[in-house]
Design a binder for these strands. Structure first.
Length: 979
RNA sequence: GCCGAAGUGGCGGAACUGGUAGACGCGCUGGACUCAAAAUCCAGUGAUGGCAACAUCGUGUGGGUUCGAGUCCCACCUUCGGUACCA
């Protein structure tokens, strides 16, 4: 019996194994249940995995990405990375490192709040239950976590420091001269001295002011000015607003422009929110990628996300007005080809630039664009836009060009306005073609065949003083001219946007901020932290886009008339710094003690999914850099080495349900009958365990499966099930044309493992049947860590057999423990040392799957050799310990040790045991293998050539041909080129 | 759309630096053991042709570089992850 998502209450093979073990001599049978239970208890009582920073050993920090404890519990995909990191952590410990390997929970978040809205269960309660379930599931797998360091972001003792770091961000600005964060108090001192003219800081554009102007400002005015500088600041940004639900929605909750819940319209609405000025760190976030041992693709994703581009800020005068539109362009050289301008629909000036005759069409377009999500707008499937009816003047040739608005220009990128050059930009070109706008060729690319529209190559034509120049020269020239004419300047632009940090939600960290009656934001005092999240019973949003907290007036309104911030922090708040808290998780005086931080420093190995490539990893790097600027952490990057695990997918099985009922009865049909009439049927996902051969093209439900299905969905008790060769209805199978097959073929699809597809496979069930050691090794054996792969329990038998065989090496044919102290043979030593080499080398390159096959090969070989020598088997047990710690511990103790195998020294290989006398060369003729020959290792090349040429099989192939060349790669291959 | 990744037997995958494609495991086929089944053990297993030796084809598709390409280059197809408020 193999496990498919196991229905509750069905006894599994594991119980049978257990039962059998009681009847047989307990010493010989491999009984993972007993062994694993025993050693888990041992590790726990001896606190084997507890670590301290007070150590003389070198440190090593292995971290898993913070899990969010979802209501569905862990499925077999989650532990993949945890197992890999656990194996590596154990390996490093065997190598003598003091290994920090902690685990905890990213416990604030939207799902718990949605669940609360639907069921009334308090998020704190649901989260605590989910965490408890996760913990049980994790414990089942035998991880080497130091559970004394467990974290929960929703714990006030933890979020006290999340709030504290937020306040530090609030109290700092980014000084471009110092190239680091400095206190706002210093900025204020400079304003008092000389206004903001000499200040070079990352900030929101705003007017200049003098010292005396600063001094006359009201507190509210000063607060507004400082918001342009603070690293945590308030600004108006757009949110997905759903009027019907009275709430702001996550992009995730919006599907095709309507809310996923209820299908109500969603529009983009401006709202005053907190943001973090991550853009201040853009350059450093980009530059420091070079110092990281991350995959090139991951670095590339981050660097593309940051999206640094060099170009020019340029002002275009508006016809009939003294206003000038600011744009950013990376191609100032193409300005003579600019035939129109495009503004984002949200651009502040749209209203003012709309001429009376265009008011109607512009209003209609704004309404359209407003209902479109940012994602849809960027996807550029259709070309939309309207002219405003006003014109800009090209500052170089004085041409009047029309101003349009279109959704492909985004408010938050650059200045929200572009000059459109259809000849040299694809999107501009498509837009011009669609609306019949002129295209002026300005670059002759005839010397560069194959160059695309956007490529920066060619010779300028039709371009005034630029005509005749090559593009790079033209760019330089025009930049200089722009600066001379003072109509703009060189500028570096980033695609990276500041991070919106407000959520109109309950289940998150409260902001430690209070507003005075003027609306000036004041930080809470450090000694008053944490500001605890008050208890609520109703989690429906408050009116006007406010968080549920806004209804809790006693909490919001302070006795002195000041008010609390009612928004809460986003999910990434707690996870942006948790790796630091693990270093010193119980500290009440600081987020972690300097001692601990200076010992553990940074994460040496970080394992998690690529889905965090640009979110969490960017924010965490940003926070770390800020804390570095403050002198609070010693390293510029928190995650030295990053390994991305692939996602384990599930199989989704569907039955076809005819959309139209037959005489009021539902009708399911076997998939092969559907043919090209898909439209007439609905796909109904069903529990994968009802399906035979699930995942294969022939997967089907039989009578038993149909009956299980009806039990689960009683509304289909009367339904017709049209099988391959007959019909099943109400417990009766009627054959058609004498056929007997009652298979109803289902459609299989690879997809997410999720509650909604009834295909979640719980690791507990697998561990229960096969044991944790087997589960760990099977997860690794499935394939390369980095690759996505579908889960299939079928193959697990191979690993299970391997473990029993490995165990069997220590016993004789009578099932008695039988270990000899004799000296090993040469062959045995070679097998052992080959295995050590394979496992160690593969571990170093995170190739866990090939380690497992290495163990299998060695075990098969040692069985063949009938090995029972301590000198071979004891190192094998230690070698296996990181992968299968329970069975290794059991064997280690049976071998006579009374300390844990966890601390045993990892075996090393000796090349002298691996030397071969001869090598089998393949002989290729013109690249095709035609023969092989055994030759001594290290034979000189001329002799190898001679030996090969003398072979009959070779001569046969060379008949009538002339040998042109013989290529010999020593100890690898021989290739003869002839014609 | 944009950014990133992956496509190898019936299945999961191996081949690390351009050098014997398919290690290891599952499944399947045949055999041993068994009253029988399970478990276990032994043998075979990319496709096509052939009694066989062997030959031809074969790493998503089309092209290219090379003595030699799963691996490098160009174009394309499909699937997956991200796309800024899921975590």
């Amino acid at each position: 019996m193999s496990i498919k998502a196991k229905p509750k209450g069905i006894p599994l093979l594991g119980e049978f194994v257990y039962f059998r073990s009681i009847l047989t001599a307990a010493s010989m049978e491999y009984t993972p249940r007993e062994i694993e239970k025993k050693w888990k208890a041992y590790w726990d009582t001896h606190q084997v995995y507890r670590v301290s920073h007070q150590s003389d050993k070198p440190k090593f920090y292995v971290l898993d990405m913070f899990p969010y404890p979802s209501g569905a519990g862990l499925h077999v995909g989650h532990p993949l990375g945890y197992i890999a990191s656990d194996i590596y952590a154990r390996y490093m410990r065997h190598k003598g490192y003091n290994v920090l390997h902690p685990m905890g929970y990213d416990a604030f978040g939207l799902p718990a709040e949605q669940y609360a809205i639907q069921t009334g269960v308090h998020p704190a309660k649901a989260t605590a239950e989910n965490i408890a379930r996760y913990r049980t599931q994790l414990d089942n797998i035998g991880f080497s976590y130091d559970w004394n360091r467990e974290l929960k972001t929703c714990d006030p003792a933890y979020y006290k420091w999340t709030q504290w770091i937020f306040l530090q961000l609030f109290e700092h600005y980014y000084d471009l001269d110092a190239d680091k964060a400095l206190p706002v108090s210093e900025l204020v001192a400079r304003f008092e001295q000389s206004g903001n003219e000499k200040v070079r800081a990352a900030g929101t554009p705003h007017a200049g002011f003098s010292a005396s102007e600063w001094k006359t400002m009201s507190p509210k005015q000063k607060d507004d000015v400082l918001m342009n500088y603070r690293l945590a600041f308030r600004q108006v940004t757009y949110v997905n607003w759903c009027e019907e639900l009275g709430t702001v929605l996550a992009n995730d909750e919006v599907k095709d422009g309507v809310s996923e819940r209820g299908g109500f319209p969603v529009e983009r609405r401006p709202m005053l929110q907190w943001l973090l000025r991550i853009t201040a760190y853009a350059e450093r976030l980009l530059h420091d990628l070079d110092t990281l041992e991350w995959s090139d693709s991951m670095k590339k994703m981050q660097s593309n996300w940051i999206g640094r581009s060099e170009g020019a800020q340029l002002f275009f005068p508006i016809d009939g007005s003294d206003k000038k539109i600011e744009i950013f362009t990376t191609r100032p050289d193409t300005i003579f080809g600019a035939t129109f301008m495009v503004l984002a629909p949200e651009h502040d000036w749209v209203k003012g630039l709309t001429s009376p005759e265009h008011e109607e069409s512009v209003a209609a377009y704004l309404k359209y664009a407003n209902a479109r999500s940012e994602r849809e707008r960027m996807a550029e499937k259709e070309i939309t836009g309207v002219p405003l009816g006003s014109f800009a003047i090209n500052p170089f040739n004085g041409e009047k060009i029309p101003i349009w608005i279109s959704e492909y220009v985004l408010k938050d990128y650059g200045t929200g306005a572009i000059m459109a050059v259809p000849s040299d930009d694809d999107r501009d070109y498509k837009f011009a073609r669609h609306f019949g706008l002129p295209v002026i060729e300005i670059i002759d690319k005839s010397a560069y065949p194959g160059a695309t529209r956007q490529d920066k190559v060619g010779v300028m034509i039709n371009s005034g003083f630029l005509t005749g120049m090559e593009v790079p020269e033209a760019i330089k020239t025009i930049l200089n001219r722009i600066e001379e004419k003072e109509i703009g300047k060189r500028q570096v632009n980033y695609k990276l946007r500041d991070a919106i940090y407000s959520r109109q939600r309950y289940w998150g960290e409260p902001f430690p901020v209070i507003y005075d009656p003027d609306g000036v934001a004041h930080p809470m005092k450090e000694e008053d932290l944490p500001l605890e999240l008050p208890n609520l019973e109703d989690f429906q949003p408050s009116g006007g886009g406010k968080s549920p907290l806004a209804r809790h007036e006693e909490w919001v309104d302070l006795p002195n008339g000041w008010r609390r911030e009612t928004d809460t922090m986003p999910g990434f708040a707690g996870s942006s710094w948790y790796f630091l808290r693990y270093m010193d998780p119980h500290n009440g005086e600081a987020f972690a003690s300097p001692d601990a931080i200076h010992y553990w420093k940074d994460v040496d190995l970080y394992i998690g999914g690529t889905e965090h490539a640009v979110g969490h990893l960017m924010y965490a790097r940003f926070w770390n850099k800020f804390l570095y600027d403050k002198g609070l952490v010693p390293v510029i990057e928190p995650f030295k080495k990053l390994v991305n695990q692939g996602m384990i997918q599930g199989v989704i099985e569907y039955m076809y349900l005819q959309k139209e009922k037959v005489d009021g009865v539902s009708r399911f049909v076997s998939a092969e009958m559907v043919g090209d009439k898909e439209d007439a049927y609905a796909r109904i996902p069903i529990h994968v365990e009802y399906v035979e051969d699930y995942g294969s093209p022939h997967s089907y439900v039989g009578i038993k499966g149909i009956e299980q299905f009806i039990e689960w969905r009683p509304e289909f008790v009367d339904a017709i099930f049209e099988c391959a060769q007959g019909v099943y209805q109400k417990g009766v199978f009627t054959s058609r044309n004498g056929g007997k097959s009652s298979h109803l073929v289902t459609v299989s699809e690879v997809g997410k493992m999720s509650k909604r597809y009834f295909n979640v496979i719980n690791p507990d069930d697998v561990v229960n049947e096969y044991g944790a050691d087997c589960f760990r090794m099977y997860e690794m054996f499935l394939g390369p860590l980095e690759q996505a792969k579908p889960w299939d329990t079928k193959g697990i038998d191979g690993v299970s057999k391997f473990l029993r065989k490995f165990w069997g090496l220590f016993f004789n044919d009578q099932g008695e423990w039988d270990i000899s102290e004799e000296a090993p043979t040469r062959e045995e030593l070679k097998t052992l040392h080959l295995c050590i080499k394979k496992v160690r080398e593969d571990l170093e390159r995170f190739s866990f799957n090939t380690c497992v096959s290495g163990f299998m090969i060695a075990t098969n070989e040692l069985r063949r050799l009938n090995t029972n020598k301590r000198s071979i088997l004891e190192p094998m047990a230690v070698l296996l310990a990181p992968f299968a710690p329970h069975v290794a511990e059991e064997l280690w103790h049976r071998l006579g040790h009374d300390t844990t195998v966890v601390e045993a020294k990892y075996p090393e290989w000796d090349e002298t045991h691996l030397l071969e006398d001869s090598v089998t060369y393949p002989i290729s003729i013109n690249g095709k293998k035609r023969a092989t020959i055994d030759l001594p290792v290290g034979m000189p090349v001329p002799e190898v050539e001679k030996a090969a040429m003398e072979m009959q099989a070779v001569q046969k192939w060379l008949e009538g041909m002339t040998v042109r060349k013989i290529i010999v790669v020593p100890n690898r291959m021989i290739n003869i080129v002839a014609n």
